[in-house]
Nucleic acid binder design. Structure first.
Lengths: 355, 355
DNA sequence: ATCGAATTCGGGTACGTACCCGCAATATAC
DNA sequence: GTATATTGCGGGTACGTACCCGAATTCGAT
């Protein structure tokens, strides 16, 4: 097992340029104190040798440690969706910890805009090198990221995007296409004309996402000239009783509903309703790999779940920050996640990687 | 940004044990030359401090480089399936190259058992530290891995498994469940009774995989009491003309075929046939994210593709070897991949990560 | 008790890079 | 001209671990 002799380091560069290692180092980190002439010469040699710094040695020698902040919703009793990104963050942290990178996680309450603001301010006080956030509250997120930009702190969005904010990257779903796929799954091989119900269960906050999904959903029907009548139900209170009350009304007003699309992870509420009311033969499609959703998938009440790899989103987001801050690499600005289709038959293999 | 002060290294262990760093090092790598008494003492301190070696420093100081061999089919004109694992391997290699790990890739010809043997022997001659292989030829793979076991070279299977060979790990699909899902997709919301055609296009080699898939496929139909009549077509020659000839015959002998399941990636041949013969309204489900398959997905001839993340399989397999050889970690022995469902609507987001 | 071998251990250097310190040479000021 | 900045650069140490070399200690045999 011979040693890799094709590798040239700073030492070789210094030798070829007739300078010391320190000078080469100055050029590499473009610090001051090198004449234009030698700088140019060294840069040429670097290019010629296609010098790749040894990150191991680099991070070992460097004492400046990097701190990343994570700003995501706290896992609530209502949904354990944000568990998955947490796992992704832990997996990433474990991987890059030896590189001197630390992660501080800040949680906000999805029912409380102020908690977002408070936590965001905490991050700014701390002074971190990079931020990963879920921009659940648009206005507050804009304010926060604007401040980040001013302070030259790179930030990455996951789960949903604010395109105008010049984030370092967005890692999450293409919501329009996701809704588009939802319509496909809901209507695939459906021949009889019937009504389709689109249900949005959320406080108004998340409406932005919802709109893109519904737009995609309707586009599919339109493009494929499917003439199902689409009715909508907007349910502002997320508890089961509210959902049941609303749905009861919708069903009393509309006969012939044979398919339901829920625009977010609260599809389990609708499933519970259908099961309680013994309504069979209604197709149901919704979002996210939650324990409760999987249960209804297994009982057959939910036909398909759509999922965007939340664990992977967070993992990649951390790695994007790492690559930018430590390696100085360019990263893909928009990384759409796969739009995964989960059924009763493949759900058992859709698990997150162990930390 | 304070330095991480919670970390204790060998130096601290040596200090607490009143020995030198070298002695601690001897204990850590359980080399000889340490008395039982000091060994015990040092081990206690290690446990107490929950010492985690700094891999960066470790790999930097260590001069012994690790060589991994990869033994997979060459990308052929018939299918570019094995492109994806190659990408995964490249991605893994880039990541762990600075740790002193090198990868040598050996290709064999899927139409030539001998080429497998030749390449396998080459690997054994070279003397490598770990092997990743696709056991396309059962007998030859058994012989090869038996030799690996004798030489104490760990090996990992991807794509398909030989459970009795005590591999370090298997990373690939659960074929039975994959076929099971295939049946679901093919029959979902199909109400009319009709015939289902199961097509297997391959030289006999890959039959083992095929059998598990078909078993799963039939199980689904049986468990769900679906009384579609299943007919089979075994096509030994993989060129289009043979496929067309065979299918023509099957169709002439059977009317009322409304759904076709192809047990591997050659579903594009069947799709081409259907398009040439202008046979619409036949559902078609098959395997793998190949360019040609995607085309037929987009034209609507193929309804669903099932895919097992070949890029990820290879990536993970390399990482499993890395974790075992470098970090000495235990790894999951069987890692089933997700069984992904690809449709026209979500295919554009099912791409492999850039290297 | 003496000697040699075996056992047990510490000093020290290397891995490739970061970065501090300080010296020399040159430029600028008076 | 001398004094003082400024610029350009090299020496050297440190990061945490691996591992070589040789020294100290122990032990058994005579």
């Amino acid at each position: 097992m011979e040693k890799d002799t094709t590798y040239f380091g700073v030492k070789e560069i210094a030798r070829r340029a007739n300078v010391s290692i320190a000078t080469v180092d100055r050029v590499i980190h473009n610090r001051t104190g090198v004449s234009e002439k030698t700088k140019k010469k060294i840069n040429e040699i670097i290019k010629e040798l296609d010098y790749q710094p040894n990150i191991l040695a680099s991070r070992l020698a460097s004492k400046n440690i990097i701190i990343l902040a994570v700003l995501i919703p706290r896992v609530s009793v209502e949904t354990d969706f944000w568990d998955a990104p947490l796992y992704g963050i832990q997996r990433a942290e474990k991987e890059i910890k030896p590189y001197g990178i630390q992660i501080r996680t800040f949680f906000f309450d999805l029912n409380d805009e102020n908690s977002f603001e408070t936590q965001a301010n905490l991050i700014l006080e701390k002074g971190v090198n990079g931020v990963l956030l879920s921009p659940s509250f648009i206005a507050q997120s804009i304010r926060f990221t604007e401040e980040c930009r001013r302070l030259k702190i790179p930030f990455v969005f996951i789960d949903s995007n604010i395109p105008e904010q010049h984030s370092l990257a967005y890692i999450g779903p293409h919501l329009f296409k996701s809704g588009y796929l939802g319509a496909k799954l809901l209507t695939y091989r459906k021949e009889k004309e019937s009504k389709i119900l689109v249900v949005n269960i959320s406080k108004e906050i998340e409406n932005y996402n919802y709109l893109q999904i519904e737009e995609g959903f309707r586009s599919y029907l339109q493009e494929n000239q499917l003439s199902f009548e689409v009715i909508r139900a907007d349910i502002k209170d997320t508890d089961y009783l509210s959902v049941a009350r609303n749905l009861t009304q919708v069903f009393s007003e509309n006969e012939n509903i044979e398919a339901i699309f829920v625009t977010n992870s609260r599809v389990f509420s609708v499933a519970t309703f259908l099961e309680n009311k013994h309504r069979k033969n209604i197709s149901l499609v919704g979002y996210d790999f939650l324990k409760e959703n999987i249960q209804h998938l297994n009982t057959g009440t939910i036909d398909f779940l759509i999922c965007h790899k939340p664990e992977e989103q967070a993992y990649r987001a951390i790695m994007v920050l790492y690559q930018t801050l430590v390696r100085g690499q360019q990263v893909e600005k928009t990384q759409y996640m796969p739009i995964d289709i989960i059924t009763k038959e493949n759900q058992e293999f859709y698990q997150i990687l162990p930390v």
